[in-house]
Amino acid sequence: MIDSEPKWLNSKVFVFYTDLLFGKDLWYTFQENNLLDEVASVLRIVGGWLVAFSRETVEDEFITKIRLDCLAWSIHINYLILLATILFIQGMTFFYVLVFNMFTPLILFIIRFRWLIWKHSYKFEA
């Protein structure tokens, strides 16, 4: 069986606030935690950030406009997903969608930006 949380990532970490399931709230303390989720999330965010906002070979006003339009578009879609989630999804699935929703602006931005760049370059090749 594959261990979903490797033991070598277990560590005591400093937390500002934690609410224990069957206990009191704790402020400014150390807690045992597996860092797999944190490492994976940081790598997704940094990787997405590098892919999304790296300079293009030709970085002109048109690329800047496409970037801005795609960023606005991705934020609009992200909040539409969030509104639909609030209205129609309950329970732990709501939490899972909220976690996924942290990454959707970058993902949607990258997909739309790359598609528009491809579409624009393909138009000029033909």
Rank of each mutant, 00 (worst) to 15 (best):
S4G: 08
S4P: 06
L9I: 14
L9A: 09
L9Y: 12
N10A: 13
S11N: 14
K12D: 15
F14Y: 08
F14R: 09
V15K: 05
F16N: 02
Y17W: 08
T18V: 11
D19R: 13
L21E: 08
L21C: 10
L21Q: 06
G23V: 01
K24L: 06
K24C: 04
D25V: 14
L26W: 01
L26E: 04
L26T: 02
Y28C: 13
Y28R: 15
Y28P: 06
Q31V: 15
N33G: 10
N33M: 09
N34D: 05
N34H: 04
N34M: 12
L35C: 05
L36A: 11
L36G: 00
L36C: 06
D37K: 11
D37M: 15
E38T: 11
V39F: 07
S41F: 13
S41P: 00
S41T: 05
V42P: 00
V42T: 11
L43F: 13
I45Y: 15
G47H: 09
G47I: 12
G48I: 09
G48F: 14
G48L: 14
W49N: 07
L50N: 06
V51A: 02
A52G: 07
A52M: 03
F53Y: 04
S54H: 10
V58P: 03
V58W: 07
E59I: 07
D60Y: 03
D60Q: 00
E61R: 10
F62V: 01
K65E: 11
I66H: 07
I66T: 03
R67F: 04
R67L: 05
L68R: 11
C70N: 02
L71N: 03
A72D: 05
S74C: 06
H76L: 15
I77W: 01
Y79P: 00
Y79T: 01
L80F: 07
I81L: 09
L82W: 02
L82H: 03
L83T: 12
L83G: 12
A84I: 13
A84Y: 09
I86D: 08
I86C: 13
I86G: 05
G91Q: 14
G91L: 14
M92A: 13
F94C: 05
F94P: 00
F95I: 04
Y96H: 10
Y96V: 05
V97P: 02
L98P: 00
F100P: 08
N101W: 01
M102F: 10
F103R: 09
F103H: 13
T104C: 06
T104L: 07
L106E: 07
I107P: 00
I107N: 02
F109E: 00
F109Y: 03
F109H: 00
I111R: 01
R112K: 12
R112M: 05
F113P: 00
F113I: 06
R114P: 01
W115K: 04
W115R: 10
W115E: 10
I117N: 01
I117A: 05
W118V: 08
W118E: 02
K119A: 13
S121A: 15
E125Y: 06
E125R: 03
